Amino acid sequence: MASNKENKDKFIVGGYEFLTETDAEKGTLDLSKIKVLETKVKVSRPDDMLAVYEKAIQNRIFKTPLGWRYLTDLREKLLASGFEEQDLIPIPLEIPMTRQSSLDKLSSKKKESPSGEKVHFGRILSIVLNVALIIVVILMFVIASTSENDNIINYKRNITNRYSAWDEELKEREKAVREAEKRLGITDSKGYDEGDVSY
């Protein structure tokens, strides 16, 4: 009964014992991919085998030793069919084969993480500051162009508007003065600036 429980805790797929259930599921997935490929690939055609071999490696289809074993078998068949070693892509292994002690891992993480974080943080900070400065400059131009105070962006428009307002006001006052003069019966041939001024 104890051996039955031990077998349940072990994750065995295709003759390999995996440490976790997730790894065992990846192994099962690799087995199903192998079955599909075996139905589609004809061993009598080396070019078909080469195409499958190269696509499987380039797309990193296999994630477990089950898939790598299949690629190794394909590689051996390709070599037997006349391909040279240099004609074939090497099979990449995605896991390290040497174990590191926990202290080695910890010290390597300490060495890598601060500098990596500083570079990463520095880039993000630089990007954020650049975006903020661009927004501030745009806001300054918007405020300067819509402001009623004279500045280099809107001085011509503001002065033209002020002059036209003064001109309009002067014309209205002159018209009011002329009407008042008519009512009072004052008719003077002199202009406003030519009159007697006594100080």
Rank of each mutant, 00 (worst) to 15 (best):
F11T: 02
K33Y: 15
E169V: 14
A176G: 05
M1P: 14
G116E: 06
D48F: 10
K35N: 07
T72A: 10
T146D: 02
G191E: 13
A2I: 09
Q86D: 12
M97H: 04
P114S: 09
K109A: 10
R178F: 05
Y53N: 00
F11W: 11
A176Q: 11
I127N: 14
P96L: 02
L125N: 13
E25M: 13
E117Y: 15
S198Y: 10
V177I: 14
S115C: 08
I34D: 07
T160V: 13
L139K: 04
W68D: 03
Q100V: 00
N151G: 11
D196H: 03
G15H: 09
A80M: 13
E168M: 13
L19M: 10
D87V: 05
Y53K: 05
P96C: 01
L29E: 15
K5P: 00
T98S: 00
K35E: 13
D188V: 11
K35Y: 07
P114A: 04
I135R: 02
D87F: 06
F11H: 15
A176C: 04
K156I: 03
S145V: 01
E112S: 06
V177E: 06
F83D: 00
Y192N: 05
I153F: 14
M1E: 14
N59M: 12
D150T: 07
A80R: 05
K10C: 11
D196V: 03
K42C: 06
I61Y: 11
N154M: 08
I138N: 03
I34W: 04
P96M: 01
D150S: 10
L71F: 03
V36D: 08
V197Q: 14
A165N: 09
T146H: 02
K33S: 10
W166T: 13
K110A: 14
K156F: 08
P96Y: 02
E6D: 02
G14W: 09
I34V: 03
K190E: 05
E94C: 08
R123W: 12
N7F: 06
G82R: 01
L50G: 01
D87K: 12
R178S: 10
